[in-house]
Amino acid sequence: MNPVKVIINKELKVIFNSLLFYIAFTVFFCTTGFIYWLSQGNIFYTGQASLGYLFTVFNGVLFFLIPALTMKSISTEKRDGTFQLLFSKPIKTWQLLAGKFFAILIQVLLCLALTLPYYITIACLGHVDHAVGFCGYLGLIFTTGCYISIGIFVSSLTSNPLIAFFSTFAITIWFQFLFEMLSSWLGNTFIASVFMYLSVNDHFDTISRGIIDSKDIVYFISIISLFLALARYVICKSRI
């Protein structure tokens, strides 16, 4: 069996045996539900069956959830010494990273699958553009991929999951908010446009509106590849 598939299976087995995972799922489901259906700016208040708001809520909650899912990915392997065990087997570093990445992505996909009843409810309440719905979920998957790769990279730097959690949070906050804020402060300059390009939100907004632009796809794939490559570099360097 392909080592990537073996690692994914093992990771999912561990996570499904963990109570923390079910708590995280419940928190995600309840928080998104509360914000979308019950909070002050809920869809009944705005009177629109808006998918854009739905995906913004999901994106915001995932932003907090992903560091929690990635914090243990590499750090605990380092802390417990299981890296020694894994790298004495015929697997490559990229296979380990791919296994970890896809295992977390699958967990997030399951989280997103839980939100399908919300989507179906909105579709029943009003007219919904399903192409926009598809793009919204696609945007969420890409954004999630970026944050997972950042989380895995940070987790490879430390053997303390808590440090990994807060450090991932500190980096992702730049991609989620700060690059965009800096860009708006700097006005119409070249650096501002660079910061705007680096902002995940800008690219997510474009896709969630139903526009699939190669510029955004290249951005997401580049960020994912960059941080996974950095994680691979850190792990390989520690083995020399």
């Binding site: 087995k13 045996n17 417990d80 010494g81 299981t82």
Partner: peptide, 8 residues
């Protein structure tokens, strides 16, 4: 140190 996966 015989590292193992405690959760499985």
């Amino acid at each position: 140190k015989n590292p193992l996966y405690d959760a499985i």
